[in-house]
Design a protein around this nucleic acid. Structure first.
Length: 271
DNA sequence: AGGTTGACCTGTCAGC
DNA sequence: TGCTGACAGGTCAACC
């Protein structure tokens, strides 16, 4: 599910309620992808100084260390003043008052909640250390992005999904940005021209910003911090549209498999 | 070293 | 109706 826009929508939804608050209690349900990495008692009482995002990770800055939250494939994070009883797929609650706080709902349990001493230590370094540049960061540079992309031999879509050059672009948005930049997803990254790759950089920024504006994409599981749907998927030009006409040329959108993921593209417009 | 594949876990849906 | 297999937004570890 959650790619950068969904995580950012979630961040914006929960940050006002968490920033400056103290952790009143924590409930752990079934195991997520990794263990928490510390005792629950160690976290209780700590103040949350901010809610940031790095790639698809939410980063809560605490008095001592950071709490990383990843939504995996099916996760969603809700804030409610009254959380109520947890359901079977509610695997983590972080309360900032007697009954209110955030709740992680994640049926597939590919998500994670992990404490680390700092971004650049322990699990923080392991999870965040190798991540590529932030596409919506102030220092994002299209030329530097293009030159780094060109150092990879794999198919351009695989390079985007790997997250080593740029973070936050998952399967939906990778399909969309390659369509906008008119690049065939199967083309080797190193064989694409610099100008075309700079267009790709702009397509990534435009698409992610637009998706955030739409509240993200809701295919199945994703909801914002207050349960609201995202609507970007209604504006997708290729994702999920196999056999339907290309919005640019009218020819049928194709569906192929790349690395066990679905790739949608227009063979005429994307070369 | 970089690229590729399997694994993790559960729900849903198409096909028989 | 019920079973089986394929597929789904991510990404790490283990292989070539």
């Amino acid at each position: 599910m959650p790619e950068l826009p969904e995580v950012e929508v979630t961040r914006m939804g929960i940050a006002p309620y968490l920033t400056g608050a103290r952790i009143a209690s924590i409930r752990l349900g079934k195991a997520l992808r990794w263990p928490l990495g510390c005792d629950v008692a160690f976290l209780v009482g700590q103040r949350i100084h901010g809610v940031q995002r790095r790639g698809k990770y939410l980063v809560l800055a605490l008095d001592d260390g950071i709490l990383l939250i990843h939504l995996g494939m099916s996760g969603r994070l809700n804030f409610a003043p009254e959380l109520g009883l947890p359901g079977v797929h509610d695997h983590f609650d972080l309360l900032v008052s007697a009954s209110g706080g955030i709740r992680l709902h994640d049926p597939r349990r590919f998500g994670a909640v992990v404490w680390a001493p700092a971004v650049d230590k322990g699990m923080g370094l392991k999870l965040l250390g190798h991540l590529g540049r932030e596409p919506l960061g102030e220092d994002f540079d299209a030329l530097a992005f293009a030159l780094e992309i060109k150092q990879h031999k794999a198919a351009i879509k695989q390079v985007l999904l790997a997250g080593q050059v740029v973070v936050g672009v998952g399967n939906i948005y990778a399909n969309e940005v390659l369509f906008l930049a008119k690049i065939n997803p199967r083309r080797s990254a190193c064989k694409i021209g610099v100008q075309r790759l700079k267009q790709l950089a702009l397509a990534i920024q435009d698409t992610l910003r637009q998706a955030i504006g739409y509240g993200g994409s809701t295919l199945k599981d994703f909801r914002g911090a207050h349960g609201e749907h995202g609507f970007f998927q209604l504006h997708a030009q290729v994702y999920g549209r196999q056999g339907e006409p290309c919005v640019a040329c009218g020819r049928a959108i194709k569906l192929v498999q790349q690395g066990q993921r679905s790739t949608y593209y227009c063979a005429h417009c994307q070369r």
